[in-house]
Design a protein around this nucleic acid. Structure first.
Lengths: 215, 215
DNA sequence: GCAAAAGTGTTTGGTATACACCCATGT
DNA sequence: ACATGGGTGTATACCAAACACTTTTGC
C-alpha cells in the first residue's frame, strides 16, 4: 500500500563569519527554533512544505528569504531524506538544498529568539536527523570547493585574491600558498581583475577582482 | 497553502550490452510501457509510489528487482524532480535513483511487450520529463566514472583489465592506452589480481582481477 | 626606513602521456 | 612461425608545490 507522505523542503544556508574568539573566520548556518511537537524548542534547519504551483528550487529560495531576508548567491539541491522513522508520528520526506550567502548581508539578517546563527562544525542535538544533514552538507561544500569554483559565492561583487584565498582556507581547513593560489585562479580564467584597487589597508593596495561567468 | 503532492521513486538502470551492429558495446537502460493515462502507451522509467515503512533506497532497489529481476551492484540517489507541470493533472515529485547492473544477469532479465531495453544515448519521446532525466543520469555516470571507481559495478566478480578498460572506453567514449590504464588501476590499489587467468582466448591468457573494497 | 602584504620568478619533483618493446598463447 | 593481445620499460611534457625575491603601500 502506498505510503501517505508529507513532503518538506529544507535548506542548509552557509555564510562566512568571525568565530567567537574574533580572530578567525568559520562557517555559520542559521537555525530556527521549533515551536511545536515533535522536537518543540529544539533547533532545526529552516524549511517548510511545498506550496501550490511552486517548484522545488523556488520553495528552497523562498524559505531562504523568509529565514535570512536575503537572496542566495548559490543554491543547489543536496539530497532527499526519507527514512521511515526520521520524524516521530508522521511519514516525512525532506528534499534538502544547500546555499551560500554573502557575509555582509548575513550580518544584517534577522536574528531573534527563534532564529539564530551557529557555527556549522559545532551544531549538535538538532531536531530530526538534521545533525547528519548538516554534516553531509559540510562534506558536500568541501568536496565541491575543491573541484569547482563556488567559493566566490561567499563574497561580494568585488574581492581581493587574499579574501578569496581565505574562503578556501576556511572551507578546506588548510593554509594555501598565496603565490600558487594566484596562479591557479588566474589560469582558470573565471576571475578577472576589475582594474580597481582596495585602499585603506596598511600595506600595498591589492587589486580587486570579480567573477566572470564563462559563456 | 501546502500543495497536495504524489511522491514517486524511479530508477535509471544502466547495463553494458552489445550495440545493434553487434560489434561494439554501449549503455542500455530498461524502460516500461505505461498502461494508463497520462502518456498511456509511451515508454517511461521504471518506478512507483513509496510503500509504507519503506526507505527511499529500499523503494528504488525494489522496483529494480521488479523490473530486471536482479539486485543492483551499485545504487545511488540521482536527483529529485518537482517542477509543477511535469505531470499533467497531478502534482508529482519524483525522487530518481541510478543503478549499475552486470550484463550477464541483465541479458537474462525479463523482456516482454511492456518491458524492453533501449540504448541510453538514443532514447527519446519518453513520458513526462524522463528524456531529460536519462540525459542527466548519463552525465552523472560519466562524471562519476572519471573521478571514482564505479566502473567495476558493470562487471562480474572476476574480470580482466581489458574488460574493465572497455567499460571506461564505452562510458567515457574515448580510447585509452592499455599500458597507462593498467598503471593507473594498479596504483589505485582498489583492484587486485586473483592469481587466476582467463584461458580460451587466441593469445596470451590475461590475469583475472577482483574489486577490493578499501576498509 | 621598516613592516607587511602584494605580486613575480625559478627550481624541483611527481604524474600522465606516448610509444617502443618483450611475453605467452592459439592456430 | 606468426598474429594477437597481455604486459613492461622509458623518455618526455606538463603541472603543482616550495620558496626566494621584488614591489608598493602605511606608519
Amino acid at each position: 500500500m502506498p505510503a501517505e507522505v508529507d513532503l518538506a523542503v529544507s535548506t542548509v544556508i552557509f555564510a562566512l563569519r568571525q568565530s567567537d574568539d574574533g580572530a578567525s573566520s568559520s562557517l555559520w548556518i542559521p537555525l530556527v527554533r521549533r515551536i511545536r511537537e515533535p522536537y518543540e524548542g529544539r533547533w532545526a534547519l529552516p524549511g517548510g512544505p511545498l506550496e501550490d504551483g511552486e517548484g522545488l528550487d523556488d520553495a528552497a529560495a523562498r524559505n531562504l528569504v523568509e529565514t535570512t531576508a536575503l537572496s542566495p548567491t548559490y543554491l543547489e539541491q543536496l539530497y532527499s531524506f526519507g527514512t521511515p522513522d526520521r520524524s516521530p508520528g508522521a511519514r516525512v520526506v525532506s528534499i534538502v538544498y544547500w546555499a551560500l550567502v554573502q557575509p555582509e548581508e548575513a550580518a544584517a539578517a534577522v536574528e531573534d529568539e527563534n532564529v539564530r546563527w551557529f557555527e556549522a562544525e559545532q551544531v549538535q542535538g538538532l531536531a530530526f536527523d538534521h545533525d547528519a544533514i548538516v554534516a553531509y552538507a559540510l562534506w558536500r561544500l568541501r568536496t565541491k570547493v575543491s573541484y569547482s569554483r563556488v567559493a566566490h559565492a561567499f563574497l561580494g561583487e568585488e574581492f581581493t585574491l587574499a579574501q578569496l584565498r581565505q574562503v578556501y582556507e576556511v572551507v578546506l581547513q588548510q593554509r594555501l600558498d598565496p603565490a600558487n593560489f594566484r596562479r591557479q585562479v588566474e589560469a582558470d580564467g573565471t576571475v578577472v581583475p576589475t582594474g580597481r584597487h582596495l585602499t585603506g589597508g596598511r600595506h600595498r593596495p591589492p587589486r580587486l577582482y570579480r567573477y566572470q561567468e564563462t559563456p
